[in-house]
Simulated scan of single mutants.
Amino acid sequence: MSPAPTTLKRCLKCSTEKPLESFARQAKASDGRHSYCRDCDRIRRRNDRAASPHLEWEATYRQRAHAYGNAAVVFTFTREELVDRYGDECAWCGGPFEELDHNVPVASGGPHTLENCRPSCGPCNRDNSHPAKVAKRRREAVITAVRARQSAHEAEARLALVLT
């Protein structure tokens, strides 16, 4: 006759004995359960996300780009790099940095790069008609068009030199 299966397990993190159902399944473990309880694992994951928000930003961007049918263009950057470049306040109104705003929206195929992202407060991030945002996007669109026109003229001039 085999002994009755153990119904309690001690969490290695909080040292509390809990029912086996409090531990996630893990096929490779000898008892088939993780060594940390679900509560401790949840706290660990929350702390990891708080320490590395850029990983969450990238994952959210990839999901949104896929949902819009766009290719995900991701160049990794950290919160510190974003703050060094743009400051620790909303780029549009000077409020607190709460969210990441893509200057060229994800829905329009905007990439997830340090150049395309700005720190933003929640209201400014959700308000795409914010006057500062509209003006900046117009300026950047004009600059891009002028650069494209200049490079087209330069290409034509180079072609004319080659053909003569």
Rank of each mutant, 00 (worst) to 15 (best):
S52H: 15
C11Y: 00
L55A: 09
A27I: 00
D31Y: 02
D41C: 08
R44W: 11
E17N: 12
E56D: 09
C11Q: 00
R33D: 04
C14G: 03
K28W: 06
P19V: 01
R45D: 10
A50Q: 12
E21K: 04
S52C: 15
L12P: 04
H54Q: 15
R49H: 11
A50N: 14
P19T: 06
R10S: 03
Q26R: 01
P53M: 02
Q26E: 03
P19M: 11
D48R: 12
R42D: 09
R42T: 07
D31G: 05
K13Q: 10
N47K: 11
R45N: 13
S52T: 14
A51W: 01
H34A: 07
S22L: 08
R10V: 04
S35P: 07
S52N: 15
P19Y: 07
C14F: 00
E56C: 05
R49P: 01
L55Y: 03
C40S: 08
K18R: 09
I43D: 14
A50M: 13
A51K: 11
R49M: 11
G32I: 02
A51M: 06
E21R: 03
R42W: 05
L20E: 06
S15M: 13
K18Y: 04
R44L: 12
K13M: 07
L55T: 03
N47E: 13
D48H: 04
P19I: 10
R49Q: 12
R10I: 05
H34K: 14
D39K: 12
D31P: 08
A27P: 09
G32F: 07
K28S: 13
L55W: 03
L12H: 10
R42E: 07
L12K: 03
R42I: 03
S52A: 15
R46K: 15
P53I: 01
R45G: 08
P19N: 08
A29R: 04
R44F: 14
G32D: 07
A51R: 06
A29V: 03
C11S: 00
E56T: 10
R10C: 10
A24Q: 10
R44A: 15
L20R: 07
T16E: 13
D48L: 13
D39Q: 15
P53A: 01
L12N: 07
R25A: 09
R44G: 07
R25C: 12
R44C: 09
A29G: 11
D48W: 15
I43N: 05
D41R: 10
L55I: 12
S35Y: 09
A24F: 05
H34Q: 15
K13V: 08
